[in-house]
Design a protein around this nucleic acid. Structure first.
Length: 875
DNA sequence: AATCCAACGTA
DNA sequence: CGTACGTTGGATTA
């Protein structure tokens, strides 16, 4: 772009256009899975991006109203008073739209006491004075008055926000018969219903233009109003004050004091990561490339690809000698292929060294690797495992940038070093181009990755509060070590037991399907919700159920409801079929997961939850069925491995309720846990005012559901649904419960309030989880956040406690030279493979370490079971 | 082929 | 209108 090209300033009324988009786009098609409506945001951005792409402005701003109050409402309190409250679904979208624009580098302007159009008028006026070509985009017709040879108005047509009509002076004359500066005169006479500004009755555009042409100006017309004949003349004379008021109010302010001048509005480079983040949150996918495209290269300078120092290739002995001299912290990357190390790279802030991995390297480097010299790594677990397979136990792991990133922002999908380099350094990690067989650009070497990791670590440390840093050092890094051993060990699973059961289930599912087909007289895919809907609601004419995004629900809960109200044999068969095929699926995925050693080696994703829990993948061993007799046959296939004596399972009983008791300090609940009485029986006795022995099964079920529900933020509605009782009864139950255990409610309330103030929740051990939505004006979003915030310290503290126990058990087993090993963690349960003759020692370790993992005001009770398989070992 | 969705397993 | 996860097959989109 040469200097001679006139700069173009585009100013947009964000509020009015987003509001139009809100009504133009169906709200149902534009909302996120957690309930945030996005149709106004999407529609606005879509229009805005097209506009920017087409007009290529050099300067840019979007103005918003601050509230419905402005100087105009003070002058005339009825101004816009007829407007209904904007829908709640819309309100929350404006702050998010502003966040989007901020991330895109677009200045967002607001000013107390004036409307967005006054800001546009001021900027347009200043822009013209400074030599800009100005484009004004607004959904308010009053902005027509701004049009000149240098100011063009882009006005949305009735079709919607994507079609913009261009108003030049000629276009205004063509449409209204008068030049733009006279438009407010027309509007003053005609009135503006949407602004609650009544005009002269019976006077429309035609008459107004005729009069104004005839008299030359509005003042002249008003002065000589007595010359107008007929009814309209009388009307005019009666409404002179209204017209003057209208004219006063529809004049846009051109001298609003703004913090930015047009020159300050040059198109800014966008924060691409921030745009990605907020678009991901709003679930905009197709918009992202359009935004990047529209804002083009000049708006999005690619994050610089910073060159890491050239790696110095050395032999292992030289590297080992060099390492021995280093006193500071180093970063380490172990390149892994086929589960084994291939290269080792290390970095200081100004040096990168590498060596190939072989037997001599192992010998030379083992002392440093196993020693306490502090090491920074990225996603260390897989590298720790590779080294362990090669016979080296890594020591001195001081920092993992992936874990630290997750602790800082547990909700973000940062999955690798490239994401972290982008986020924390604002740089681009060099990547090998995967599209080329012989890459032109070599990706970073292991040592260079380490160099980047070291710099990311410094940036993260600057952000880490001390308590979170302690969680990393004292909980997460030792947990990583234990998990590496658990994954390497795997769990022995009997192929035979599984395949036998799978065969049975397949045959059963088949038979059920045949029966079901016979009933409905045709074959359908019972796994297809779509075909099922045809069968249930069209063919069998059962009443429609709960709506889903794509139709009507056919899940187990609604099928059970249907069975109650409209019994039909097909329903029962369908449920049975679901159960059989589900179990078969699970068995199938487990079978595929059995490695050559006859064991399943799951992967624990340490950054897999927002609360601090682990997750388990490939396969997930944290959701193996247990609830009914049938499904326990799957657990029975998890066996003690050859050379070991038995499996031990240990689980915390009611750990979350105990944490509730501790955090709330509720005397009743604390007494319940100290009394040794069955928790639900104790609580039931209090709630229903009977002796513990008199608590009936239904009473126990109710308080049990209530207690568990508390931890999740359950409502009376939800409780009534789960227990299938009247909402009034559920409400009563909650009242009785809180009358006896009031401190629980007080705690839950105050913890959410504290989170609203702090912006995050905290576990007993200092793990944090941010909750920006606690202050959202969107009710759905805010209430979702409130329930999650209520649960996070409880679930998170439980996760912390289990991790601490796991770490200590793992360490004790190693320290005491025992062969027994922890295999699985299922949130509140551990599965240990006990070596021959070690039962007593292992049971002792597990019991005390789990029981002592945290010092709460109630005991941590641990239940231990023993058996040759997982089912038998359960208790 | 990639992505979304409903459904469902666990704590 | 109950928190936290991962996996699946079918349907839909690219």
């Amino acid at each position: 772009m040469s200097d001679s090209v006139q700069p173009t300033l585009l100013v947009v009324d964000g509020h009015s256009l987003a509001y139009r988009a809100f009504f133009a786009l169906p709200v149902d098609n534009f909302s996120t899975k957690d309930g945030q409506h996005t149709n106004g945001i999407y529609g606005f951005l879509s229009m805005f991006v097209n506009l920017v792409k087409a007009e290529r402005p050099t300067h840019l701003a979007v103005a918003f109203d601050t509230s419905r109050q402005s100087f105009r409402t003070r002058v005339y309190e009825e101004y816009k008073a007829n407007r209904s409250e904007s829908p709640a679904e819309f309100k929350g979208q404006i702050p998010l739209l502003q966040d989007c624009l901020a991330a895109m580098g677009v200045p967002v302007l607001t000013k107390e006491d004036v409307e967005a159009d006054d800001i546009l008028a001021t900027l347009a006026t200043q822009g013209v004075e400074s030599g800009f070509q100005v484009l004004v985009c607004s959904g308010d017709r009053d902005t027509i008055q701004l049009v000149t040879d240098d100011v063009t108005l882009l006005y949305p047509s009735v079709q919607g926000v994507s079609q913009l009509k261009r108003y030049t002076p000629d276009a205004v004359v063509e449409k209204y018969g008068l030049p733009p500066e006279n438009y407010p005169d027309i509007a003053a006479l005609v009135g503006e219903t949407s602004d609650n500004l009544p005009g002269v009755p019976k006077v429309g555009e035609k008459t107004a233009v005729k009069w104004l042409t005839q008299f030359g100006s509005l003042d002249e017309l008003l002065n000589r109003a007595d010359e107008i004949k007929g009814v309209v003349g009388g009307n005019l004379r009666e409404h002179l004050d209204d017209v003057r008021r209208n004219r006063q109010l529809n004049a846009l302010l051109r001298d609003v004091e703004l913090e930015l001048t047009p020159q300050d509005l040059a198109v800014q480079p966008m924060d691409t990561q921030a745009v990605r983040d907020i678009f991901a949150r709003l679930e905009f996918r197709t918009l992202l490339p359009r935004v990047f495209d529209a804002f083009g290269a000049d708006a999005e300078p690619p994050a610089p690809e910073v060159a890491a120092p050239e790696p110095q290739e050395t032999d292992a002995a030289t590297l080992a000698a060099w390492l021995a001299e280093q006193t500071g912290e180093l970063a380490l990357t172990v390149a892994v292929a086929g589960g084994l190390p291939t290269r080792v790279g290390v970095a200081t802030t100004d040096a990168v060294r590498e060596t190939a991995w072989d037997e001599s390297a192992r010998t030379a480097l083992a002392p440093w690797l196993e020693g306490e010299a502090p090491k920074v790594m990225v996603d260390a677990k897989s590298q720790v495992k590779a080294l362990r397979r090669a016979g080296v136990r890594l020591g001195g792991l001081a920092f993992d940038v992936l874990l630290a990133g997750w602790l800082l922002r547990p909700s973000l999908p940062d999955k690798n070093l490239a994401d972290l380099v982008d986020r924390y350094l604002d740089e681009k990690l060099p990547e090998a181009d995967p599209s080329q067989l012989v890459p032109e650009t070599e990706g970073a070497t292991p040592g260079q990755l380490a160099w980047f990791a070291l710099r990311v670590a410094a940036a993260e440390r600057a952000e880490l509060p001390a308590s979170v840093s302690a969680v990393l050092t004292d909980i997460e890094l030792p947990t990583l070590d234990a998990l590496a051993d658990m994954e390497l060990a795997g769990v022995s699973v009997s192929r035979d037991k599984l395949s036998g059961f799978s065969g049975e289930l397949a045959a059963r599912a088949d038979a059920i399907a045949q029966d079901a087909y016979a009933i409905i007289g045709r074959e359908v895919n019972l796994g297809s919700p779509k075909q099922l809907q045809e069968v249930l609601f069209d063919q069998l004419e059962l009443p429609k159920t709960r709506k889903t995004k794509t139709g009507y629900s056919t899940d187990a809960a609604v099928l059970a409801d249907l069975q109650d109200t409209n019994p039909h044999p097909f329903l029962g068969l369908l449920l049975q079929h679901r159960e059989a095929t589900k179990l078969r699926q699970i068995i199938e995925s487990l079978t595929v997961g059995i490695a050559d050693d006859g064991r399943i080696h799951t992967t624990y994703v340490q950054t897999g939850s927002q609360t601090g829990r682990l997750s388990s993948t490939d396969p997930n061993l944290q959701n193996i069925p247990i609830r009914n007799e049938e499904s326990r046959r799957i657990r029975a296939a998890f066996e003690v491995g050859a050379g070991y004596e038995t499996l031990l399972t240990a689980d915390y009983s009611q750990i979350e309720m105990r944490i509730m008791a501790h955090l709330s300090g509720d005397p009743g609940l604390i007494e319940a846990f100290n009394s040794g009485e069955d928790l639900h029986r104790f609580v039931g006795a209090r709630v229903f005012g009977v002796e513990p022995a008199e608590v009936t099964a239904p009473m126990r079920t109710k308080v049990k559901a209530m207690s568990y529900g508390l931890v999740y933020g359950l409502s009376a509605f939800g409780l009534s649904k789960q227990l299938r009782i009247e909402q009034s009864e559920a409400k009563q139950l909650m009242l009785e419960y809180f009358a006896r255990f009031g401190a629980v409610r007080d705690y839950l309330r105050s913890s959410v309030e504290q989170a609203r103030i702090d912006g995050y929740t905290e576990t007993i051990f200092g793990r944090r989880r941010p909750f920006p939505d606690l202050t959202s004006p969107n009710r759905v979003l805010r209430e979702n956040a409130e329930r999650a915030a209520l649960n996070a310290p409880i679930q998170g503290s439980a996760a912390d406690i289990m991790k601490i126990a796991l770490v200590e058990i793992h360490q004790d087993l190693l320290d005491q030279g025992l062969g027994s090993r922890v295999l699985l963690q299922i949130h509140d349960e551990l599965v240990v493979e006990v070596a021959t003759g070690e039962w007593d020692a292992v049971e002792q370790i597990v019991r005390t370490r789990m029981g002592d993992a945290a010092d709460l005001s109630v005991p941590l009770e641990v239940q231990i079971g023993r058996g040759g398989d997982w089912d038998e070992a359960a208790h």
